[in-house]
Design a protein around this nucleic acid. Sequence first.
DNA 1: ACCAATTTGTCCGTATGTATG
DNA 2: TCATACATACGGACAAATTGG
Lengths: 244, 244
Amino acid sequence: MTSKTVFEKLDLAPAYRQVSDSVEKMIRSGRLSLGDWLPPETELAAQLGVNRSTVREGLRGLEHAGLVRRDGKRLKVAIPHYTELASRASRALVMHQVTFRELSEAAAALETITAIFAAQRIDEGGIRALENNLKEMKARLNDIDSVVSLDIEFHNLLAEYADNRALSLAREPISLLFYPAGKIILTRLKTQKRILDAHKRIVALVRKHDEAGVRAWMERHMADLKRGYERTGIDMNRPMDSAV
Amino acid sequence: MTSKTVFEKLDLAPAYRQVSDSVEKMIRSGRLSLGDWLPPETELAAQLGVNRSTVREGLRGLEHAGLVRRDGKRLKVAIPHYTELASRASRALVMHQVTFRELSEAAAALETITAIFAAQRIDEGGIRALENNLKEMKARLNDIDSVVSLDIEFHNLLAEYADNRALSLAREPISLLFYPAGKIILTRLKTQKRILDAHKRIVALVRKHDEAGVRAWMERHMADLKRGYERTGIDMNRPMDSAV
DNA sequence: ACCAATTTGTCCGTATGTATG
DNA sequence: TCATACATACGGACAAATTGG
């Protein structure tokens, strides 16, 4: 048996780490809440008993994480937004050499369930937004870049009206990578018309709140995109990094 | 009136930002690859023409993002791993006051598709791992904490054998929040037996590669958990923050 | 529109601890 | 054991931008 422990195990983490942890705790505990300004660096340094340079190092981490945001000169407490997290996540997927096969499978599942929820919950405004998207795409059917970005917008609209933030967070990093792949497909096989037709069908079914129909058509639509990719001749099991 | 403006006001991002961007580009372009040591701070400072303090601020951001990792004294290039991204994402969901309804819906969809892929692809080793998990849970059915963590492990095992990293990334932040909720349920309604039975069924179907059966039972299982939560009397539309 | 105070951005120099050869 | 290289941390300084009177 060792002798009685007298001394606390003292800080192994570098000071700048303790600074960011400390501020983060402050935020999580609610002592600093959303939109509050952070104290000036000098004051933080004084309160925490470290040098201002050390404080700055700590703040950079939080800034990068999106927990504090620049508003003019000073920093204010913020909430990391999905899009930042999503872009970070999709970059991680690329670095992990995720394949199109993986993306396609995940996207099929997520876009389908998203569309089903949208069919349950969409309102008139949502229907109109989707129809505008269809109209736009119809008008620009020859411009591949427009079609691709309108395709992205279509799925994002569905996600918006699906009214589920957990699902949004889950699908965003994947759609961010999946749809660029759509561009590869479109530039090689001109399947814009096929995409537009699928979207039209889906909108019609969403309007009728026909969940089963939406499921069937979204699954068909996603399978179609996968087939398109296969027909480009690119190996499905090749990492996506070239596409990004 | 001022004289005619000729030069754009060049709005330079702060130097520390340029440092992190520069290093990040270096990594992404492959000029620094996985596991490489970063140059010493002094050398980075010299190469980039900024002060060492500035370099340090820039590095803190990358460190926080998981793009570089401290290995002993120096920093080496790393890949941000899912679990870090996932915990960040789930914390963001909490801050966004995501409700149990949203989590439950997303989890149902993601766990179901995960189980289906697992049924397609699992091997003997995977089956054995799942069966060990069942055995453990059966042995500890009275210890709620054990049951909850074994439940988490069960679903993580399915994800592992589903062999899809995009899906893993998508489900992790949600499962991280959803399963703590499982503990709330179990402490109020003793439904351990029901969970174990569902897991048993799913394993049997996964072994037979019965995708339709797996889909049906996983959907039932997730619906069951949702019902359990409802029966605790907690409002499904209340934010999850209290649970975490 | 001007001034003064505040706060950040950036730099310099230095001291200390700790791995590694 | 000793020397070197490197990260950590501190203190002080000044310019530039912002804010408030």
